[in-house]
């Protein structure tokens, strides 16, 4: 019996291939059930008009029971968007990736939520504790206990 993660990710991938990604989201690579990459772009008028970012998803064998580890890719000239909930190392402080994760969410649902998080941004700035966080941040953002003090994300 394939793990529940492999079965579910297999279906999500099939759906992405047959129906495509939501507007502004594109699959870059999904060669296995461990790491997937997407590009993400905010459509219409926003602080991020014309900017394209890369999102990385990492899955463990308990996905979708446990949340994926999601972050912006910052290698090979790629950058994390400047946003009050996005650290310069690519880590994202969003409750749906932490204590509000539920198996009802999917990879594309996370992409769309992050897309609207960017779209609703009024002022491009890093989180206040960016430098301190980035200096000590674990490799896996799931190991960080973020405090979600802003429900508008």
């Amino acid at each position: 019996m394939a793990s529940i993660a492999a079965r579910r990710l297999g279906k999500e991938l099939k759906e992405i291939h047959s129906e495509g990604c939501p507007v502004g989201i594109n699959l870059v690579k999904a060669d296995d059930f461990e790491t997937w990459w997407f590009t993400i772009e905010v459509m219409g008028e926003s602080e991020y008009k014309g900017e394209v970012y890369t999102l990385q998803f990492r899955f463990d064998g308990q996905y979708p029971i446990s949340s994926p580890a999601v972050q912006f890719v910052i290698t090979d000239g790629r950058q994390a968007p400047i946003h009050p909930h996005v650290y310069s190392n690519g880590h994202i402080c969003a409750s749906i990736l932490g204590n509000e994760w539920s198996p009802v969410l999917s990879v594309t649902a996370v992409c769309v939520t992050l897309q609207s998080m960017l779209a609703s941004c009024k002022k491009k700035e890093r989180p206040a504790d960016n430098d301190r966080y980035v200096r000590h941040a674990p490799d896996n953002p799931k190991k960080t206990q973020f405090h979600y003090d802003d429900d508008t994300v």
Partner: peptide, 13 residues
């Protein structure tokens, strides 16, 4: 409104 994709693996098990 729960999608089949979401629940079917759990249902099958």
């Amino acid at each position: 409104g729960i999608e089949k994709l979401v629940y079917e693996d759990f249902y099958t098990e």
